[in-house]
Each structure stands twice: as C-alpha cells, then as structure tokens.
Write a protein that binds this DNA or RNA. Sequence first.
DNA 1: TACAACTGTACGCAATACGCACAATAGGCC
DNA 2: GGCCTATTGTGCGTATTGCGTACAGTTGTA
Lengths: 259, 259
Amino acid sequence: MAEQPDYYVKSAEKTLAVLLAFDAGHQALTVTQVAEAISVSRAAARRFLLTLVDLGYLETDGNAYRQTPRVLDIGASYLSGLTLPQVARPHLQQLAVELSETTALCVLDDQDILYVERISNPRLHSMNVSIGNRLPAWATSMGRVLVAELPEAAREEFLSKARLTHYTAKTVASIDELRAELDTVRAQGWSLVAQELDEGLRGLAVPVYRGKQLLGALNVSVQPGRIGSASITEEMLPLMRRTAQDIADDFGGRTAARN
Amino acid sequence: MAEQPDYYVKSAEKTLAVLLAFDAGHQALTVTQVAEAISVSRAAARRFLLTLVDLGYLETDGNAYRQTPRVLDIGASYLSGLTLPQVARPHLQQLAVELSETTALCVLDDQDILYVERISNPRLHSMNVSIGNRLPAWATSMGRVLVAELPEAAREEFLSKARLTHYTAKTVASIDELRAELDTVRAQGWSLVAQELDEGLRGLAVPVYRGKQLLGALNVSVQPGRIGSASITEEMLPLMRRTAQDIADDFGGRTAARN
DNA sequence: TACAACTGTACGCAATACGCACAATAGGCC
DNA sequence: GGCCTATTGTGCGTATTGCGTACAGTTGTA
C-alpha cells in the first residue's frame, strides 16, 4: 500500500505487526497463524516470535504464543508522562463524582476514537472498554464531536471512508444523515448519542480545546435511569464544559513549563 | 549482556528500545538523544524514528519526537482478551464498592510489580498509578505476596537482585529483614505494607491462586482515615479472599472454554 | 562573523535477515 | 498399528537490508 522511502526499516513494521497480530479475537497464535496474518514467511514469523519471547513480550508453551503483561510497558510511558491523559485524570475523577457517572477522554485516530483515559464509577456496570480501546468514531458521541470540529476537507475524507454498521434500531442510517448530524454537533458544540451503538446507552460529549488546538473529546455516559435528554444537557453540559476548560488550561500550563 | 541466538532479529529489539526510550521522564526526544539512550548510531536511530512516524506510533515537529496515543494499541489487545485483567475487572469493581476503597491487580515482572487492572474510587485521590505502571516489588504489599509465594530458589534470586531504597522512615532496612517479612507473608497468606513506599499509604494484598498456579496479587489501598491494622485485616481479608477466589474460578472457567 | 552543535542525506559495504528445502513431529482416520 | 496429512523446527547459501561514515546544511550563540 504505502510507499516505502529509503529510510524505511521494514523490520520495525514487522515487529509491530507481530505484536498487533494478537488482537482481541486472537489471544494465542501459532507460528503459521502469525505468518499468515501478517503475510511473511513462516521462518520470518518464527524469528520474530522467538526474539519477542527472549525480550519478554511474548511467552510460549512450545506451540502457541501469547502476549505477556509486559506489552503494557510500551503504552505505559505514554500514560505516565505529562500527556493529556495524565493531566486529565483528576478532572475526570472530579466530574465523575459530581455527576455520579462514568467519564472518559478520547482522541481521534483515523476512523476510530481511542480511549486515553477513563474513570468508571464502580457502582455502575458500564460498557467494558478500557484505555487503548477503539470504537468507530461515527457511532459515538466523542467521535462525532472530534470529526465535527475537523476542517471541511478532513471531515469529508472521514465521511468517504466511513463504513456505517447498523448496530441498533436507532443507529444513523446514511452518510448524509451523519453529515447533517455533524453540522448540528459543530453548531451546538456538543453531541448526544443515544442507543446507536448499544441499547440503553447514552453518551454526551464536548470538545476539549486549548485555544485553537483540539486536544480531544470528553464524555459522560448517561445511565438509562436518568431523566430525558433536555434536562441531561441542561444539567450536565455546564459542568462538562468547565471540566474541558480545566483540562485544557492545566495541559497548556504544564507542558509549557517543560521546554 | 544476553546471548544472541542465531534466530535473533536485532531490529525487533531496537524497535522496542526506541519506543521504550520515551519513558516517564523523557516525553520528547531528538534523534541524537534516542541514539545515545539506546546506543546506536544517529543514522540508525533516525531510520527507526522516521519509520515509527510513518507507522503512526510517533509524531515529530521536525526536531523532537514524541509518542502518539496509538502506542496504546499494543497493550490494548492484551487488556481486551480473555486475559486476567479482563476477567478480574468486575470483581475488582464489586470489591471496590463493598470496601469503598481502590482495588488493583498486579503480576510480577522481574523485580517489579506490574499493574494490569485497577479500579480507583473517584471519591479518593489515591496514588497516581495506572495500568502498565511498575513499582518495586519488595516495597509493596502485592509484590511481597507474589515473591513470598515463589519457590525458594526464585525467591532468593529475587532477594539477591533487590535494591532496597529508603523511601520513608518505615521502609524495611535490610535484605534479612525483608526475608523474614516474606516468611511471615507466606505463612499468613497476606501482606500489609504501611507507609513504606509513601507516607500515609497502606496496602493490603492477597494472592490469587487457581489451583497451584499463582495468577497474580489482589490489593486494596487503605485510606489513612481508616481504623487500625487489626480490624483492617479482620474486616477486609475475608472479602478479598472471596474476590480472589471468584477471579480464579472465573478465569479458569472462561479460558478453559476456549481451546 | 565565526564557531559550535546540532541536524539531514548519500553511498559503498558488511552483515543481517530471508526463504527455500529438508527433517522431525504430531494428530487423524481407516 | 500404520499410513497419511498437516504442522513444526532447522540449516544454509544468498540477496537485501540496514549499517555507519563522511559530508553538507541549519540553527543558535558568543
């Protein structure tokens, strides 16, 4: 697909490909399965697998390979730095307490939203997403906020690549319908998505802006028991906007302090 | 250091080394800094950095490089599978509610404990650890449980490599003192560590066993306001042991269902 | 302006990593 | 049990990949 400039290190791509071959549906893989999954020879797959075992990122019973917890190291450095999730956590916690709901922060990565921080209310059993998880952007409140705020060209490119799936009866049906919804979201500055991805689940999201830079989107999952949409936005939006502002200020202040 | 068998793919090691060079203290690195950090030539570091930018794991302003949220992908597959953290989460949530405290699950990785799941109580501002973070095993309640349950030889190897740091006035002072403490922990089946890593922080941990296999350690952070040690263990231990058992049962049942 | 300390880039060379081909092993079926 | 298929481990010659030097461009400071 992509061009391969002369500085390109193919082995780096393969290394990551091997690690990513172990996705949610494929916990344990054999040499042959990995070779097929990432389109390399069996010998090559084996070399990479054995190397990653040596490095401690994979383990094997002699036949199948699986990831070890050490793979978490790679993302942990991102989470622990003075990055957005780290800065946002206390604010998301405060908001989670004030609203007694689950709060989350996402960024846009290609066609997906990527959870970078999430404070779940242990009292509720909410959706089983954790940090690093992806959801299709078009079907989520955070995704719609993030796409709506994109420049026109990028937004249209997103729409052209979007693959709408009919999750529930309320899921948006067409690209045109989605485009109209995005216009509304951009105009009002927030998005409420009700039961489009999952029955009985409503998400309310606002953008997190630092000046003109869009840092991410902030979300509150609204439990089914809660009152109607009108009062939800009335009640929650001001607090969410204040939280978004707090995160942005804090992020700018702290990162500016570093050189 | 380590031998390099003839199947070894050096580039795989370098790829991971580059990604890990961006640790908590080094958010943004230049080509030269990376080259120094992982002991490769500047040209090599540049090739890997540019490749990782192409792959979307790093971004650059033309000078410094930093990680993108996409690095979370690598660990996300581990977290989402039918692995320990995924299975443990609902049980940790329930326990967090019952005790109104923060709960966590760790595994041992070398000399460190590695957080694989954590349910923080938003009402408390507890220590700022997140999934994938490491803490020195010898100084934590979970670490002591995990090391105590190790076979004799492995336990002694751990002790021989341990580097004790004097965190607080209450920190254990010598290897012999630590060895005695581990004996106690093994005998009683739990560990309470009070203010050894951080003032005002107490952790209580029990092992999570599935049959004879040690899956990990379960922890409750005890807030300072709580009553004395005796009643803490009396009150909390039964619930923690029940949770550990639930996790183990659930883990075995679900993973056995897969082939 | 000159210097220092960075950067980006090209290119010849060596070693790395490739993938074929064969051997060995494991499982399924009559 | 014995045959067959499918999958795995491994050695080896070779092409390619990735190496690092060397040079040129860029930025910032004295």
